[in-house]
Amino acid sequence: MMHRKVVLRVVSKFLIPPILLFALYVQFHGDFGPGGGFQAGVIFGSGFILYAILFGVDTVKKVLPPWATRLMLVAGVLTYGLTGVAGLILGGNYLDYNVLAHDPVHGQHYGILIVELGVGTTVAAAMITIFNVFAGQPGGD
C-alpha cells in the first residue's frame, strides 16, 4: 500500500530535512525574531510525525526508539531545573541567570539559551511520544 504513494514519499523526503533545520533555526534564533523553545519543539516533533505518517511508526522507532524520546522528555525538564540550581550554586536566586557568566547580560544570554533548549527538547519529545502512543494503538474501525 505504501509503495504506491510515490509522490508523497518523494516530497516528504525533500521536506523533512528543511523542517528539522527550520526547527533548529527557530530554536536558536528565537532571541532575535519570533520563535523559541515551544515552537521549535513542536516543529521538530511534527517533522518526525510526518515521517511516521508516511512510513509507519515502526520505522520511526528505528530512528528514534521509545527510550530515546522518554530520555529527551526527562532531560529537557531536568535541563531547565538544573539551570536554576546552577544559578543557586553560583550564588544567585533560583533561575537567576545573572551569575552564570561574568557579565550579567551574557549570563542572561546563556541562561535563556539553555532553558529554551530544555523546553524545546521536552516539547518535541512530548509530541513524538503522544503521537507514537496514539498511532501504535491496535484496532479501531
Binding site: G76, V77, Y97, Q108, G111, I112, E116, V119
Partner: peptide, 27 residues
C-alpha cells in the same frame, strides 16, 4: 537581558518559574 525579542526575555527570564511550571505540565 540584551535580547531584542521581549517575549522571549519575559518568557525565559523574568517569568522563568512560570515557564518551568508549563514545561512540567507538558511533561
Amino acid at each position: 537581558v540584551g535580547l531584542p525579542n521581549i517575549v522571549t526575555s519575559v518568557l525565559a527570564s523574568y517569568r522563568g518559574y512560570d515557564t518551568l511550571g508549563e514545561t512540567f505540565v507538558i511533561f
